[in-house]
Design a protein around this nucleic acid. Structure first.
Length: 313
DNA sequence: AAAGGAGACAACCGCTCTTCG
DNA sequence: ACGAAGAGCGGTTGTCTCCTT
């Protein structure tokens, strides 16, 4: 083998500050383009591809490097992912200062947590079946309802793109797209308001979150005000099955209706399972398409035991 | 204090799309 | 119209840090 000289060796791995400096200077002179010329001119022993990635993900101005996703950003990603699928670059355009890589990483982490939760819950339900009954009946067969908004030929790929790559193949668990749920006006809202980092007013679209969380159809809508009341905190402290809270943290706990409040300020203290009552959903949330529940197996909720009331904890 | 697990992040790889000669 | 090169995108992997046991 002929040994290449050092000039030809392509560097990989973490970037040094000097390399960043060279890259920044290149962009100052030429703009964010001609990436491959950086290598061909011998400025850096990096591929043009690598240079572009470095610029886009780390060096570009106005990036929110190092800061965690805010709750609003999280919810926006969740909703946009449901609408667009795994189009991270597109989703990132709705999140100022965030890159497609950021969004992708955030989503991956979230999927891992979800997968873990489902696994934990399934395990717990098996081991505790004889004690208190299942937490969620046979999670391995829990499949999201089908939506018809994807055009023919598009649905399969979209459905695939919405599924988690982190979930074991043996489990039929699909992330549910948010097809017609994010209405055009919603997205135009986003586009016009993002400059001010304004978030979608969920009270105007109460059905959004219901669908966003349709992976857990028994879960109530997440709530704008996610702070816990004193009573709720006490309640959380006494819950003996803390898997959900442990895994998902306060945000997800609140999404699960624990210690949360309705937008109108009404405290949520009803059993989680009660929200899956079809009639109730129809009457209390008339904007929810009935077909959502129609697509579930008729006996899907038969085995879900209503949670104990707080007084029984 | 040490080990292991989980989360966050950075970067690479392969594929597709776009542009240009 | 076609092919090559550049650019963009999504999936995946590796590494580091923090937390829990």
């Amino acid at each position: 083998m002929e040994r290449k000289n050092d000039q030809d060796v392509i560097r990989k791995g973490p970037w040094k500050a000097e390399e960043d400096e060279v890259l920044i200077n290149h962009v100052k002179k030429n703009g964010p383009r001609d990436w491959s010329s950086i290598q061909s001119k011998g400025l850096l022993q990096r591929t043009g591809k690598s240079c572009r990635l470095r610029w886009v993900n780390k060096l570009r101005p106005n990036l929110k490097n190092g800061s965690k996703f805010s709750r609003e950003e999280e919810r926006l990603v969740i909703e946009l992912q449901a609408q667009f699928g795994n189009k991270w670059a597109r989703i990132a355009t709705y999140l100022p200062g965030r890159t497609d890589n950021d969004v992708k990483n955030f989503w991956s982490s979230r999927q891992k947590r979800l997968a873990r939760l489902l696994q934990t819950s399934a395990t717990a339900s098996k081991s505790q079946k004889n004690k208190r009954g299942p937490i969620c009946h046979d999670l391995s067969t829990l499949e999201a309802p089908k939506f018809s908004s994807f055009s023919e030929g598009e649905s399969s790929s979209k459905a695939q793109s919405c599924s988690s790559s982190y979930i074991d193949n043996s489990e039929i668990i699909k992330m549910v797209p948010l097809p017609d749920l994010v209405k055009p006006q919603l997205l135009s809202n986003c586009e016009t308001n993002l400059a001010q980092q304004e978030f979608i007013p969920t009270e105007r679209y109460p059905w959004i979150d219901t669908y966003t969380h349709s992976l857990f159809p028994q879960v109530l809508q997440p709530l704008p005000d996610l702070s816990f009341s004193t009573g709720s905190q006490e309640l959380l402290a006494t819950i003996d099955d803390t898997n959900l809270i442990d895994v998902f943290g306060p945000l997800y706990a609140s999404e699960l209706g624990i210690g949360a409040q309705f937008p109108n300020g009404q405290a949520f203290s009803e059993p989680v399972g009660s929200c899956i009552n079809e009639e109730r959903v129809k009457t209390e949330n008339p904007t929810t398409p009935e077909s959502f529940f129609d697509d579930f197996p008729a006996d899907m909720f038969d085995h879900i035991e209503p949670p104990r009331s707080p007084s029984n904890f």
